[in-house]
Amino acid sequence: MPSQLHIVVCAGIVPDPLQTLEPITTPSGPGLKNEMVLPAVLDPWAACALYEAAHLAAKNPGSKLWLVSLGPKAKLQQVMMTVAQKVAFELVPIDGPIGGFPDAHATAAAIASTIEAIPGVDRSKLLIFGGWESATRGACVTLQIVGERLGITEQFQGVDQIDMRDDGSFEVLERIEGGRHQVSVCSSAPAVLGWATGNLAEPRNNPQIGMANMRSMMPALQKAKAATLDTNGLSYVSVSLPKQQRTTRVVKDMTPDQIAAELVEWIGAE
């Protein structure tokens, strides 16, 4: 008997990972040059969480799926035009600052209070999903604090798989060192799962899903609450691009045998 789940995915937006990034100082702290101009995407690990959540919801009829996202409203709208075509969900936007430099604790507080305010969320069915790290802060902090703020102490990080069982319990595979997984069984919801890549491919763009999502998405974006984030005493001493330019010796005229010999020596050297 499949369980009905209430899955809330927390996913931010990040600059497309292939963009050129350059830090600058803004009146409100560090930022990225042209940050609002850079194309944005859904945070890659959180996107995996969204696809896994949609897959899980589809396998458990009667389940509901929300996507909570904090970012500038206009930028959220832009990213959602792509994300909305992939899986069906209800968007819960929070109009807030972009980027990785705002404090994670404040972000977590804004997200937790937003989740608490979502009408109809049943705690006994609640799974909170997100990426185990973001592509901005990369901190592995926000989701745990969201869980703590909501009093959820069954938490998993680096998740690659969840298997629901008929009794409502579920098995979770978390990444640990050495390319291995720790296997745990949680007897019931609520729980927090920070996802690594999972096992699903990115879903196809489905225009009908997009149309269905859009009915609630645009009004939600228009009504998005603005969040101001506290710094919690965080200050930036410096923000810079790494200067790790190496002098590269280009070897063009050696045969494969000669290269192999040189490499054998290099590999063996301490």
Binding site: Q77, M81, T82, Q85, N205, P207, G210, M218
Partner: peptide
């Protein structure tokens, strides 16, 4: 355009 609510523009399609 999209803020108006009248138009939907779908990229990647």
């Amino acid at each position: 355009l999209m803020a108006s609510g009248l138009v939907q523009i779908w990229p990647g399609t």
